[in-house]
Write a protein that binds this DNA or RNA. Structure first.
Lengths: 194, 194
DNA sequence: TTTAAAAACTAACAAACGTTAGTTAGTATT
DNA sequence: AATACTAACTAACGTTTGTTAGTTTTTAAA
């Protein structure tokens, strides 16, 4: 990964280091002075590139939210079956989690540190995402492709069942992203029972 | 729930309010003065009942860790099939999450604020828990009750698939704890595919 | 009713926090 | 070589933080 990095702007570097730091210590447990040290400049100097500590968190959260949304839009219009759509979304989630482990972790754990106003916006986006994801499940049930499960329960079970990936995945485990996505999909689609 | 509360000691009240506050604002986003206000005394007065802010977090985390462990020990020796053991543990998790939503949320999200030393202890307990949970899956596979899934993947998919319950459950939804546990179990055991 | 202990209070500390102001160093353009 | 701009620096600000010290009030026992 680091070998591929092409001249990150200082702002991007700050946000990237912030993702790493917030993931490790939490937003509330990370100080601007800690962060500055990781970036390699003084805390005050960072304010030439960012407006505030809050802004960093917002950028991380909304950037990731946008990516999730974009992929959902793409999947919605694809001409594949409903189970295939869900599997495609699972695969995308797994990939995004692995490729952006720091940022995803921050979104999942530290969105509650967003300002009231931004939190409302964030929750609204997330809500919309869930509704559209649920719609795919719903249509899949109507089409007879899924069992008649409670849609909310299925939705959240699927979405939250992916949250451990961020903590678990290492290339050294010898499980590729693709295999991982397939295995998780298999469990959610067909269950663990023989 | 509040109607059943029997004279909570002030220490218990502090920890209970702390669970609620930490869940809402995060450990790093909650001040002792905030907490004191919820408890109804001055911040300084709390120190007659607790040693430090850290101690509160530790108590919450290790208390819940202990409860998870205790239930696992019980389930391990029960004379039921491996799938039944997993389903029993899922049902217990769901119940614990619902009955202790605040504390469970804090454990899941704020354990990273534990001191280095206590965090090592906490992780060690959690690790042990996961190993023993995995052992049940493993034996279930050997017994032919489960598919030959990757044990780690199954383990973490099951465990983390329950994390949304804390955010979703309300009595007003008309889904009982028991129904909820059954529906989640059904998905994990048999999948959503028709 | 006196006494002792428990639990609350006020006041304050030292440290850490996010952030601003003012200044200096580096870089690119004319 | 002079100019202008960017990005870094040092110093400090006003708060807020967790916590301690010392004092007063409340509670319970004798």
């Amino acid at each position: 990964m680091p070998t591929l990095k092409v001249k990150l702007s200082k702002r991007e570097l700050i946000i990237s280091e912030a993702s790493k730091l917030f993931r490790e210590k939490g937003f509330g447990g990370s100080s601007m002075r800690d962060l500055a040290e990781k970036v390699g400049i003084e805390a005050a100097s960072m304010y030439h590139h960012i407006r505030s500590k809050d802004e960093i968190l917002e950028e991380i959260c909304f950037e990731m939210a946008h990516r999730y949304e974009a992929q959902l839009s793409e999947t919605e219009v694809q001409d594949i079956s409903y189970p295939e759509k869900i599997e495609a979304l699972i695969a995308f989630h797994v990939q995004l989690i692995i490729d952006n482990a720091n940022a995803v972790s921050v979104v999942n754990n530290d969105w509650k540190y967003l300002s009231k106003e931004r939190m409302i916006a964030f929750k609204s986006i997330r809500n919309d995402y869930e509704k559209r994801f649920a719609a795919i499940i719903s249509k899949g049930i109507e089409a007879g492709a899924f069992k008649k499960v409670n849609i909310s329960i299925a939705l959240f079970t699927i979405l939250s069942s992916l949250r451990w990936v961020e903590l678990w995945y290492k290339p050294t485990r010898g499980v590729t992203k693709e295999d991982l996505a397939k295995d998780i999909s298999a469990i959610l689609m067909n269950g663990v029972k023989a």
